[in-house]
Design a protein around this nucleic acid. Structure first.
Lengths: 168, 168
DNA sequence: TCCAAACCCTTGGATGTCCTAGTATATTGC
DNA sequence: GCAATATACTAGGACATCCAAGGGTTTGGA
């Protein structure tokens, strides 16, 4: 992985698709494969930046979400919905964040089924610092041209809406 | 996740970024987050299609790669490089594919360090069937407009080249 | 020639994701 | 009011990914 390949493996896959008579779906196949690979690259960068803070991307996302909540607290099911991950993934993340003293679980005042996740002061501070690091080391150097960023937001926004992520 | 959210959570995150004075990186943040979420949606679709074949995406990718190799066999390190995943991930995938009788390990004829992965007849057949299913159920209904597919291929291709995936 | 460095693969451990199932609490409908 | 249904969270298991470390094989320079 250290050394670049001589040829683009996804472009090669597309050629293979075309050679096998699947030309009609070769382009979407290439686009989807490229999304998978790009996600992998971005995730690695993000995790690299977060590692010194003792955070993973999953835990960071939860911290960031809480830091934007007016009260600094959210029900777990709400977090699961907003982060669009499985409830058990939230349970897992909260377990670890709580172990690190960054959040605490507290009972919901009126609904006995619900558990609230609340930022500790330490968690709030760490979220701020981690966000600053991501902003400067990842987002400010995304490697996408400005126009392309807009294109991505538009294209993927439409896709996500069609996939049922949101109705708006 | 079953019910669409009333608002786009990524657009909301972008607003939060702007409100906190990080307007300069709000757009790339949104684009990157959208890529992460889109990958998640696509992966779920793909795995759903592959499940009846007893395959995961990781295993399918390896099978497909082998099916396009002229000899039907590849060294493990070559597969690792082309799929751009860690060597241990290939070991893991090969273990399971071999257990299912879809590939076999064989020693490299001249290099004692290297192990070749080879498709069995059964593996070749399954790869064909799985590809046909992905073509019709995922790639042919990607949900991306044709123009957008081209945009994605272009934008992400540039990104991957800059990230060091290939030199071409 | 021969040993150190480089390379290849595997094992073991840490994380994250999802699914299924189980327990507890709310809500709904009769 | 109470049973049936729905909702919320957690426990356990299957997979995948990466990293670190270890053992075997090659290669290359002294």
């Amino acid at each position: 992985m250290a050394t670049p390949l001589p040829r683009d493996p996804i472009a090669d896959a597309r050629l293979n698709w075309e050679r096998h008579g699947w030309s009609d779906v070769a382009a979407p196949m290439a686009a989807i494969t490229a999304i998978m690979r790009t996600q992998q690259i971005l995730l690695a960068r993000i995790e690299g930046v977060l590692k010194p803070f003792g955070l993973t991307f999953a835990r960071y996302e939860l911290l960031a979400l809480l830091s934007f909540a007016r009260s600094g607290a959210l029900p777990m099911n709400k977090a699961s919905a907003l982060l669009q991950v499985h409830p058990t993934s939230v349970t897992n993340a909260v377990d670890r964040l709580q172990g690190a003293g960054l959040v605490i679980r507290s009972p919901h005042p009126t609904d006995g089924r619900t558990t609230l996740i609340e930022l500790t002061q330490e968690g709030r501070t760490l979220a701020k610092r981690a966000t600053a690091a991501l902003n400067s080391d990842v987002f400010a150097q995304s490697g996408f041209a400005e126009q392309d960023v807009d294109q991505l937001i538009r294209i993927l926004g439409t896709f996500r809406r069609n996939a049922g992520d949101f109705s708006e």
